[in-house]
Amino acid sequence: QTVHVKGVQYHFPNPEEAVKFALKVAKDLGGRVEFHGDEIHVE
């Protein structure tokens, strides 16, 4: 599972961890989380 944050990719073997990370980052940055297939983008 890959999380993209402002052009940087973070790889997580566990999808659940990836989602938790993405939600935390989005909250910290005041952004939103978008799901694109296997990828999660924080915009």
Rank of each mutant, 00 (worst) to 15 (best):
P13W: 10
K24Q: 14
V25M: 14
Q9I: 15
A26E: 02
K24V: 07
G37N: 09
Q9R: 13
V42R: 01
E16N: 08
H4Q: 07
Y10T: 03
Q9H: 09
V42Y: 02
H11Y: 14
P13T: 13
Q1R: 15
G30R: 08
D28K: 13
H4V: 15
V33H: 02
K6I: 07
A22S: 03
Q1P: 09
I40H: 02
E43N: 12
Y10E: 00
L23G: 04
F21L: 02
G30H: 09
V8Y: 09
F12W: 03
N14I: 06
K27T: 09
D38L: 11
F35K: 05
L23H: 11
V8H: 09
V25S: 05
V33Y: 04
E34Q: 11
V42I: 10
T2K: 07
Q9S: 11
E34V: 15
K27I: 09
V8T: 09
A22P: 00
Q1M: 15
A18T: 02
G30T: 04
Q9A: 13
E39H: 14
K27W: 10
F21G: 01
G7W: 05
E34M: 14
E17T: 08
A18D: 00
K27H: 12
I40V: 05
L29I: 13
N14W: 04
P15W: 15
P15Q: 13
H4Y: 15
V5S: 03
L23W: 12
F21P: 01
G7H: 06
D38W: 09
E39S: 11
D28Y: 13
G31P: 01
N14V: 05
F35A: 04
I40L: 07
E39C: 11
Q1E: 04
Q1C: 15
P13F: 10
V25G: 01
G31T: 05
N14Q: 05
E16Q: 11
H36P: 03
I40N: 01
K6T: 06
I40P: 02
Q1V: 15
P15Y: 15
N14L: 06
L23M: 13
A26D: 00
V33K: 00
D38T: 12
K24E: 11
Q1H: 14
E17P: 02
L23V: 10
R32H: 11
H11I: 09
K27G: 09
E17D: 12
P13N: 13
V3W: 02
E43M: 15
G37E: 07
Q9D: 06
Q9Y: 11
E39D: 11
E43W: 14
R32D: 04
P15L: 15
G37D: 08
H4M: 12
K20T: 08
V25T: 09
H36W: 12
E34H: 13
V33T: 03
N14G: 06
F21R: 01
K27A: 13
N14C: 08
L29H: 06
A18E: 01
H41V: 09
E16Y: 11
K24L: 10
F12L: 04
H4G: 03
A26T: 03
G31C: 10
H11S: 09
Q9L: 13
A18L: 02
L23K: 10
E34L: 13
G30N: 11
P15C: 14
G7C: 07
G30Q: 08
H36I: 13
F35D: 03
Q9G: 05
R32L: 07
V33Q: 01
G7E: 04
F21T: 02
G37Y: 06
V3G: 01
V3M: 01
K27D: 08
H36C: 12
H11P: 04
V33M: 07
H41E: 03
A26S: 05
K20I: 09
A18R: 00
L29F: 10
G37M: 07
E39W: 07
Y10S: 02
H41K: 07
I40F: 04
R32T: 11
D38G: 13
P15I: 15
V25W: 11
F21V: 02
E43V: 15
V19K: 10
H11Q: 08
G7V: 02
E39L: 07
L23T: 10
D28R: 13
G30V: 04
V42W: 03
V5A: 04
V25E: 04
V42N: 01
E34C: 15
A26I: 05
Y10I: 05
E17I: 07
E34Y: 15
E17W: 06
K20R: 12
A22L: 03
H11C: 13
H36A: 07
I40W: 06
L29N: 06
V3Y: 01
G7T: 04
E34F: 15
V42H: 01
F35M: 09
E43P: 04
